[in-house]
Design a protein around this nucleic acid. Structure first.
Lengths: 135, 135
DNA sequence: ATGCAAGTTAAAGTGAACTTGAGGTCAAGC
DNA sequence: GCTTGACCTCAAGTTCACTTTAACTTGCAT
């Protein structure tokens, strides 16, 4: 009897019960049964929820996540997946710029950041990058 | 007369005019004046819009972006900025996992990805990572 | 002067991802 | 067997970031 009730899942993942019910309703997770009216989850749901959060970090919609890892495997063609991976690669590059920008802003105290040459150069780079690889 | 009207800004950035008006209304950008009723923008708005998009990629809300680079510089304490940078650093790590995961899914054709050992290992790593560094 | 494309406003609508609230159910402990 | 508290459903509400619509105004070409 190692099945988890909704509050146990909530406690272990930090995801509110209301959200878990919402995911359940949307078909992103699936309870293994009920005790009375109460949902019971297999522990594997924890891995699955980690996957969902990861997908969200990457900017996937819930419906896309459900589509990729739905009840039975992905229906997504390989090319689309490779494209997605490339998109995330670009996103990583942009985040590196933001990270460096924030670090710079935290240190350098020019009167306004928009006047700091280092900062402007970073912005220019980012704009160019965005221009080269579609938005 | 190198000022830009709204459609020029839209064309050069790819951002719809409706969104530019929305940003204007929200105080994220500011027109340098009007010709008749029509907004005119300084070319620097292009850099500024690149910055906004960059901020969005990093998951900042529009109000946060306005707060950091509002009319006059950031009011955000250095520590908060460093924390943000660290958060983005984590986000980058997670995106690397997603990128690798997608690439893997694109190649390996196990019956279901949830059964592929490589994939499960990646998920576990991600979950651990998320557990160590708050959500 | 007239017509019209391209702008304007204000308000309402959209979609995604949740959250909240009211009222109901049920297994467990006293 | 009755209360209690954790869970349930279903509908409505919230936030964010826009988009759409309807009705109005204006600079510019004819």
């Amino acid at each position: 009897m190692k099945d988890l009730d909704i509050s146990e899942v909530a406690k272990q993942t930090g995801i509110p019960a209301s959200t878990l019910r919402y995911y359940d309703e949307k078909g992103l997770i699936r309870s293994i049964g009920r005790r009375g009216a109460k949902r019971l989850y297999d522990p594997s749901v924890l891995d699955y929820l980690a996957l969902i959060q990861l997908g969200q970090t990457a900017g996937f919609k819930l419906t896309e996540i459900a589509g990729i890892f739905g009840p039975d495997g992905p229906q997504i063609p390989r090319d689309a997946l490779r494209d997605k991976a490339a998109g995330i690669e670009r996103q990583i590059r942009e985040l590196e710029v933001v990270r460096d920008g924030l670090r710079h802003v935290a240190e350098c105290s020019a009167p306004s950041h928009l006047e700091c040459p280092t900062f402007r150069r970073m912005m220019r780079l980012a704009a160019d990058h965005r221009r080269r690889h579609g938005e």
